[in-house]
Design a binder for these strands. Sequence first.
DNA 1: GAATTAATTGAACGTTCGTTTTATTAATTG
DNA 2: CAATTAATAAAACGAACGTTCAATTAATTC
Lengths: 215, 215
Amino acid sequence: MARTTGSDGEKTEAAVREAAVNLIARLGYEAMSMRQLAAEVGVQAAALYRYFPTKEDLLFTLMREHMEGLQQAWSMARPAATDPVGRLAAYVENHIAFHIERRHATHVSNMELRSLSHERLTQILKMRTAYEKELRMILRDGAEAGVFEIDDTGLTAMALIQMMTGVIVWFRPGERLSVAEVTASYLSMTMRLVGATISHGTARPTRRAGDVVAL
Amino acid sequence: MARTTGSDGEKTEAAVREAAVNLIARLGYEAMSMRQLAAEVGVQAAALYRYFPTKEDLLFTLMREHMEGLQQAWSMARPAATDPVGRLAAYVENHIAFHIERRHATHVSNMELRSLSHERLTQILKMRTAYEKELRMILRDGAEAGVFEIDDTGLTAMALIQMMTGVIVWFRPGERLSVAEVTASYLSMTMRLVGATISHGTARPTRRAGDVVAL
DNA sequence: GAATTAATTGAACGTTCGTTTTATTAATTG
DNA sequence: CAATTAATAAAACGAACGTTCAATTAATTC
């Protein structure tokens, strides 16, 4: 046999991407074979090589596009306003919404980094760092303006990102909590964690000793 | 050749375990071959099968003993006192110390779960759930006593654990921050996140409106 | 409707994998 | 010091892997 009736390169490539994200998320990159992926798409393994020259190219493409999507989502959600509380809230909301919506792709991008070549790993990490830097800037601005109370900006940014991204580990759509409820809770935890005050911008944080523990 | 001079079963098995944790953490379970592991130990691949009947048995043993170690560490660090703030502080300190000290083993236990059979996966997850339940109990007790302010106990416990465990992703001993500094920061962030008040036990949380944002 | 291009199959290649078997030597026991 | 046990090496097994190549058919172009 050869070309099948109704076959279409664009559709096949899209099907390969989707099946690959799901399979890699479920089995892991190393554990997923090209034959398995092909079977999921309904095609022979050799056909995959028309769209991706190697298995690693496929992985890299999925990761790069995921990271580009994350940056783009944030660039569209980023508020024009400059007050740190509003910017932080937008960051948290966007991060959680994006990661819940793309759980599988996030799983792949976070767990399969070691299967990339050194050069490609660097490239993905650069994109990730750029995205995380946005959060550090918000935290730094807020701390300088006196609306946040933060020990260490870098450490706090990492803690927040781990906390937020961790949502994909346990959250399942349609169970006990809705996306809105989860987002609201994480927003509230985030604001408490950074010691956000209601006062915007100029006021000093007038926390009275003994109100909130800071060991 | 056959048995080598100075060979000792106990020492070889210990060497296999240690090399396996490091190799799996670095390469991933699927990507590590038994021949690679054997070479790291300085032995032929067939020799490994004297100590572990299959590759998966090796992985499972590493994970089970890691989880047992975690539970044991907590059972020894658990304070006799009943006040939630002290118990939470002990939980955080123990969790971070343990995970920083056993970064590689934690990596393995968290990332390679999908390579276990269903039965063994269940067994490991049961141990993990039991450990996490301790945190949920502390949070619930604190919320009921009025010393914590928590939306959802389960969600908060997951957020805290993800945040704390995430330390192994970016922390490297001997760099900018010491273990003590990291622990202190995480403790402070945790207490703010759960809205801990200084008052122990009976007092109601007398937070004044506008002091801490809770969106 | 012939020529060209797009999409895929089926078979094969060499390599590596986890694992088993058998033989061999070191250490221990009586 | 002979007999036994412990610990390994060496070689081989079939299966599965990523990938390549040639052949073949569907769709498109002129």
